[in-house]
């Protein structure tokens, strides 16, 4: 058995947006950007952490911004990632009872799940906007980087909104298409990992 990590890579080039026309092009582009942000975020985080060690031992100089930069990156990764995960049906769920239900009920449940999740994400997106703008108006700075705090959390509303969008589209897709869709591009039972979906 090959190691599980390898064959489960998502092929971004092969990603087909669930949306028609121009919207689909925009959506595919957003998907591409999310993927790049994820990869670059992780690489930068490793680089930043290593640089801090090197600085401390070779230059007797700690990188004071290192911790803040990692905080910025983890926020970026998390919020680029939740939308990307929604797009590819990768969010963690407990599907034991769901899977045991008959197909028609499953489809109805999927519509409800996707719609409710979308609503929750939009709600959080809205309050994340409030939170970010409150931060901006208070003018709090990151102590080491000396940049406004809101710069590094602005991904939160964006991530919630894009995630909500993916779930909303999933609900619609389940309503107008036959089959059961986990996300706009992932069919239930579609096996891109050689293992069960989660």
């Amino acid at each position: 058995m090959p190691s599980p990590a390898i064959d489960d890579d998502i092929d971004d080039a092969g990603y087909v947006s669930g949306l028609p026309g121009v919207l689909g092009v925009v959506d595919a582009a957003v998907a591409r950007i999310e993927a790049v942000l994820l990869a670059v975020g992780v690489l930068l985080m490793a680089l930043n952490t290593i640089a801090n060690v090197v600085g401390r031992y070779l230059l007797s100089q700690s990188l004071f911004f290192s911790e803040e930069l990692n905080q910025a990156l983890i926020v970026l990764i998390t919020f680029a990632g939740i939308s990307y995960a929604a797009r590819h049906g990768r969010h963690i769920r407990m599907s034991a009872f769901f899977d045991a239900a008959p197909p028609r009920l499953r489809k109805a449940m999927m519509v409800v799940i996707a719609a409710v999740t979308a609503a929750a994400m939009f709600l959080l997106a809205w309050y994340a906007v409030q939170y970010v703008s409150a931060q901006a108006s208070r003018g709090r700075l990151l102590p080491a980087l000396q940049i406004p705090v809101w710069w590094i959390i602005v991904w939160a509303p964006l991530g919630f909104f894009l995630t909500g969008l993916q779930y909303a589209l999933t609900a619609i897709k389940n309503m107008i298409h036959k089959d059961i869709w986990l996300s706009t591009s992932t069919l239930e039972g579609y096996d891109d990992t050689g293992e069960e979906e989660v």
Binding site: A5, D8, D9, I10, A35, L37, L38, A39, V40, G41, V42, L43, I74, I77, T78, F79, A80, G81, I82, Y84, A85, R90, H91, I92
Partner: peptide
Amino acid sequence: LYATAKSTGLITAVVFILVG
């Protein structure tokens, strides 16, 4: 390497949103 970093980011995100 790119694919690995991306996969790491994805796993991180789905776990961290739960932590958050």
